[in-house]
Design a protein around this nucleic acid. Structure first.
Lengths: 157, 157
DNA sequence: GTGGTTCTTGGAACGTGTCTAATCTTGATC
DNA sequence: GATCAAGATTAGACACGTTCCAAGAACCAC
């Protein structure tokens, strides 16, 4: 399938200028990585970001992808999500509080808008720890994997 | 320091018989690994389990540690905890609902008894997923790291 | 005690992520 | 538009955590 990325100037217009204000040099590599990540609003691994961005910038190195992702995480523009198996995944939806649901079969991640009744009051202290962040992960089977397919098989995308 | 492990028969007497009922062959390796893990009630990494069990069984291989831990997880006797950086950790406290709090500096994990007011109603379905598990992780600084130590340093244990 | 099934072992191999030194680019300045 | 220094990118080596494999050893039902 052909990924029709939006033009750079259209992608989250605030993001690129925010980054620039923080002294970020806007190289073509960083621009493409941000486009891939923010433009698709899915939860890609670093390797997937590398593959997709590489379609637009074949010379792109893995080191640059990792560097850029780590910088975006450090700046709070992207959230790192660990799903127990395999690589970290990167969530561009960093500015809205939300939870995640992970398929235990195919590892697909979706954002979950927390219903008001399930919102945890952010505790300031837990077991003596100064808590700054609460992460909620639901685990189960996604709609595709929940249908009667043999366990372990990944439904075709 | 000398770890004074409890004798095998004292360690979670139910656990070993439960495992046996499921057809688990009770080798000395598996016994020692279960003792180390369940007997100390902390959150060890596979490498730490290997090191501690190796004090009692010097020939123990890493492959066996990983095999055994994965089996215990599959049987629901142990919970895998991902802390974003580094190795998975293994929580023997699998039969009581609880959350975890992780120090973002030294990665120390503690169990958290969820106060009744913060218990999430386990949703049956989220975003179309059939949810079977809810995981809550608090992140922050542990008491040791929260005192005015330079960021990145790990207080002596 | 015997035998077959299962477990363990050491080492190779893999996936993810970081580091390094050399080279190239960006953007401020003229 | 040209210059230049600071910073970014690159390829590849490396580190770490984990899994795979084939050969040998141990467990336990008989």
């Amino acid at each position: 399938m052909a990924h029709s990325l939006r033009a750079a100037d259209e992608v989250e217009p605030d993001l690129l200028s925010r980054l620039r204000q923080r002294g970020w040099r806007l190289s073509s590599q960083r621009r493409v990585i941000a486009e891939v990540l923010v433009g698709e609003h899915v939860h890609l691994s670093a390797e997937e970001v590398h593959a997709r961005a590489g379609q637009h910038l074949p010379e792109l190195s893995r080191a640059t992808v990792y560097n850029t992702l780590n910088e975006l995480v450090a700046m709070g523009e992207v959230i790192e999500v660990s799903v127990t198996n395999g690589a970290k995944r990167y969530d561009p939806n960093a500015h809205r509080i939300h939870h995640h649901v992970v398929c235990r079969n195919c590892q697909a991640i979706r954002d979950v808008e927390p219903p008001p009744t399930t919102v945890l009051p952010p505790p300031e202290a837990v077991a003596g720890y100064a808590v700054t962040e609460t992460e909620v992960i639901y685990r189960g089977l996604c709609p595709d994997c929940a249908t009667d397919r043999p366990e372990g098989s990944v439904p075709g995308s």
